[in-house]
Design a protein around this nucleic acid. Structure first.
Lengths: 118, 118
DNA sequence: TCCTTGTTTAGATGTCTGTCTAACCTTCAG
DNA sequence: CTGAAGGTTAGACAGACATCTAAACAAGGA
């Protein structure tokens, strides 16, 4: 529904199908969780550990931030589905969810259907 | 520098190398620009148009938002390097920068070096 | 030249978010 | 059971952000 009723030809015709408002909202929710320097480093740190998991105690030591702040960021990542946590004895271990990251990664390149068809 | 001096073995050893604080800050800057439903749809709309470019006039019509608000979001995308704009006569055309999107996409999967080596 | 249309800039405002301190829950060792 | 250490929750506060209205700037047509 373009506002242009006159034959101004201001815009090129659409070819692919853009994100719906719902898809965009869902994607934005997860990207928001990623779009923070601390959380990016947390993800990276967790993924860099052997077995793809790390305990909070070591993560906390990597930042000049208080424990509660790290805990808050981990919660954001957890609620976005980007990490999973499991308590084993005294310590709680965090693990990344590669599937969701792969989905996000794919969404970014799917966003540009400007293949070499030009 | 873990806080653990005792041989508690709380944490698995690191294998890969995590993001530096600078890399994380730079990545977060761009992800922040993406992490908004309106901007995601803008990117998608621009990319979906033939030739990979679209003018503001048509983008504005796709949202229940005022012109200045759309302009603000486009500016954020532009300053993040995600889109490029060019004026041709009356209208200004926006084009996505696939290279940066591809970089982001790669960063997300590079983040998880948990290959099938386990 | 003046007017109309497209687009951006400036300023204001309400909401969201990152960080802290203090308090609480969980697990293990005596 | 009691104490200590790991980790989370609750509440407060400063800074950032999305949105709007009003005004300004740019390009084209009468």
């Amino acid at each position: 529904m373009s506002k242009h009723v006159l034959p101004l030809l201001c815009c090129s015709p659409q070819t692919g199908e853009p994100l719906s408002a719902e898809e965009a909202a869902e994607l934005a929710r997860v990207f928001k969780a990623i779009a923070d320097p601390v959380r990016l480093r947390l993800l990276s740190l967790i993924a860099s550990h052997a077995g793809g998991e790390a305990c909070v105690c070591d993560l906390t030591g990597a930042f000049a931030l208080t424990g509660p702040t790290i805990s808050h960021h981990l919660k954001v990542l957890r609620e976005a589905g980007l990490v999973d946590s499991e308590r084993r004895g005294t310590w709680i271990y965090y693990r990344v969810q590669p599937d969701l990251l792969a989905q996000l990664s794919a969404a970014l390149v799917r966003d540009t259907p400007v293949k070499a068809s030009a």
